[in-house]
Write a protein that binds this DNA or RNA. Structure first.
Length: 293
DNA sequence: ATTTCAGAGAATTCCTGGTG
DNA sequence: CACCAGGAATTCTCTGAAAT
């Protein structure tokens, strides 16, 4: 059994994306994994990239795709250490747009191609986008969060396109089919997150057991049902706090929370401040005049 | 408006039996 | 024999009332 550890990734910006340059050690560190998805591009040097028992030899320009289940680690050649630009990001960002964007990261490990060779059209398309994200997050000019997210969506759309054409239609069919249950649930949740919602109920929709559906979330998203539901509810709560003058208690129930105490606890856990403090901090900033209440 | 806490309830994990 | 789904056991989180 190979030793591996789960890392908890913290995001350093107002958007759940990190971009950073990194040089792997020249000895082999233990494998690790994390809930966030990752894309790495080798910019210089030599080395290897390990995924479980798979091993890739790395050259500058090569791009690596890391999903939330595979254990992995990069390693530099001693005489010529490699350097990478890495992006890691929360799968929730993709889910907000279209569940299918998660497909490139949900392909079974044995047929998952982690390496995009430097000379491929795909790598050529992705690399400048990665650099732009790094620049945006570094400079933090007005609207950089939207820029970064937009660029990320482009990158992942490129990936989606390429796997839909590279993988034989029959197999692609199989992969998208096994994904369809999740799409049904995810769509339902986005529509009904502000109502009481539990796994049992979702499981019934699919004629599956709740334990099965719980595992499905881990497999597809890398995070549990509760976590994902919370993500949706918090987004709505933030919006209501900033854009309306609804009392906090009302915001709580309107965004789907079932009790005020858990709302305060979870909100503070995510934002670090109480709902009212959040409103005071951000409500002065109206982006569009016509969205004022 | 916000926090606290014990009891209640739900989600996740582990285990087992069925299935190809 | 490997894989997958359901159910039991376990672990974790929420709820609701009361205090600040």
């Amino acid at each position: 059994m190979v030793k591996s550890m789960r890392l908890n990734i913290e995001y350093e910006h107002d958007i759940a994306i990190n971009a950073f340059y990194w040089t792997p050690r020249s000895y082999r560190e233990p494998l690790h994994y994390h809930a966030s998805l990752e894309i790495g591009c080798c910019v210089s040097g030599e080395g290897e990239f390990y995924f479980g028992s798979k091993k890739y030899v790395v050259a500058p320009g090569d791009i690596f795709i890391v999903n939330h289940t595979e254990r992995h680690i990069a390693c530099s050649a001693e005489h010529n250490p490699s350097s990478y630009l890495f992006l890691n990001f929360d799968p929730g960002l993709l889910l907000e747009e279209d569940e299918r964007l998660l497909l490139p990261f949900s392909i079974p490990s044995e047929r998952f191609q982690n390496l995009i060779p430097s000379d491929s059209a795909l790598a050529t398309a992705i690399w400048p986008l990665m650099q732009s994200i790094w620049l945006e997050l570094d400079r933090k000019l007005e609207g950089y969060q939207m820029m970064a997210k937009g660029l990320l969506l482009q990158i992942v759309s490129h990936l989606l396109r390429s796997c839909s054409t590279d993988i034989p239609p029959s197999e692609w069919r199989e992969i998208t089919d096994s994904f369809s249950n999740f799409r049904i649930i995810s769509a339902y949740m986005q529509e009904h997150f502000n109502e009481p919602l539990d796994l049992e109920q979702l499981a019934r929709m699919l004629h599956l057991s709740s334990s099965r559906v719980s595992r499905m979330f881990q497999e597809v998203l890398g995070r549990g049902f509760k976590d994902y539901l919370l993500l949706l509810r918090l987004a709505e709560a933030r919006r209501l706090l900033v854009r309306t003058d609804m009392p906090v208690t009302e915001v709580c129930f309107a965004s789907g929370f079932q009790s005020v105490s858990s709302f305060y606890r979870l909100f503070a856990g995510a934002e670090g401040i109480s709902p009212m403090a959040y409103r005071n901090k951000y409500s002065g900033i109206a982006i569009f005049e016509n969205e004022l209440p």
